[in-house]
Write a protein that binds this DNA or RNA. Sequence first.
DNA 1: TACAATCCTGACCAACCGGTCAACTTGCAT
DNA 2: ATGCAAGTTGACCGGTTGGTCAGGATTGTA
Lengths: 232, 232
Amino acid sequence: MPATESLARADTPRAGDVPRAPDSRNVMRRKEHIRSAAEADILAAAETVFARAGFSGATMAEIAEAAGLPKANLHYYFRTKAALYRAVLDHTLSLWLAETDGIRIDADPALALGNYIRAKMRLTATHRDASRVFANEMLHGAPHIGKYLRTELKALVDEKSRVIDHWARKGLMDAIDARHLFFTIWAATQTYADFQPQVCAVLGKTRLSRAELERATEQLVRMVLRGSGIRG
Amino acid sequence: MPATESLARADTPRAGDVPRAPDSRNVMRRKEHIRSAAEADILAAAETVFARAGFSGATMAEIAEAAGLPKANLHYYFRTKAALYRAVLDHTLSLWLAETDGIRIDADPALALGNYIRAKMRLTATHRDASRVFANEMLHGAPHIGKYLRTELKALVDEKSRVIDHWARKGLMDAIDARHLFFTIWAATQTYADFQPQVCAVLGKTRLSRAELERATEQLVRMVLRGSGIRG
DNA sequence: TACAATCCTGACCAACCGGTCAACTTGCAT
DNA sequence: ATGCAAGTTGACCGGTTGGTCAGGATTGTA
């Protein structure tokens, strides 16, 4: 996500656009470290706060406190609240594209799709806040990442859909609309992160145990595979 | 939802708690009409705005403009922004419980579940904003409707789960966890309302056509029925 | 040590927002 | 017509929030 840095960074005087002597590289490396470490701390705190309160509900003061920094320091690294939000989103999106590698023409459909679902479910469990930030952005019309959806994500889904169509033509599974299949998989997995209060309430628990998630995962895998006519 | 009125209404002086003569009923009816008409207008505008911007992102001024009323008038009918939000949520929740009537022991599983999915999908299409308001509330931890989830919704799902367990024991379908089945159905249907930007972007369209939704619905029905071992 | 670049921060401000209120109009029974 | 309750509204207010800025502290080099 090359846009991240240019978006996230504040305009420190002449930083990055001034030619530097070769021997000054070490300096910049150390400065870079301070920078990236601070940015990482801020991003982590921001992700938590944005996930809980959304963009409008989150306050820079709250994020600053969560990061253990004075508020003005946030504005040193991220010019505006919107820029910080974009940076959090960029980090989230980088998680999103992953895990589809196994969906290839020469792969076994049951294994490939099953492992994809398992990976997605694991992702929503380990990166709950990222999932919520993403969901929030969707809910509000995806004003910041619309272009990403129409280009990168669409291209990826188009490619993987061709794989599934190929599987269907080879008789390995039913001829189904791969795109809607992805929508269902995404929705069914993300719901355990985004709608956790509902899930917990209906199950009569206060939190989602690993075992419960495991059960949900395997049932979903079974349902998708059988529902797609994949012999398991 | 009896709590709605007491929550939503402003404390007009002595309204509702003063004994009235029987012949004054017509008066109150007309006053009630003004009241309910105004409340309905405000609620409709609020649902749209809350759906787009969330609770924190929405402003009373914006809602007022959408309703074509001065801001102070909103506060006449709904004391606070939170009370207005609660009223919108209550309206949303009343939609939520419906449509499960068909899931009965003596029903045919394929028909009952299939029609339930179709009804849910229709609901997300016709009440997109309501779905988004609900999703937003979930995302932020369901602070306002936690009790509803743990009581009414849980009771309903418990009851319907027993029906599905019964179907499984009679050999009409596989023995699956009914609760997770509901989570999957809810997620897969709501995603077409809540994540519409993603769906449209991946499909390469600007809006979801009725035909596209129809296709998604039938594929989901087929997947759920076959995935649950229900003979179709 | 001297310097420059980067990093850090307390104090401050303008804009916005939810909510109030006093004054006004409308509707309706007598 | 009269009077009162209900409905309506412009103007206003205090608190919050994103963002700024001047100046000090740190870091690393020459």
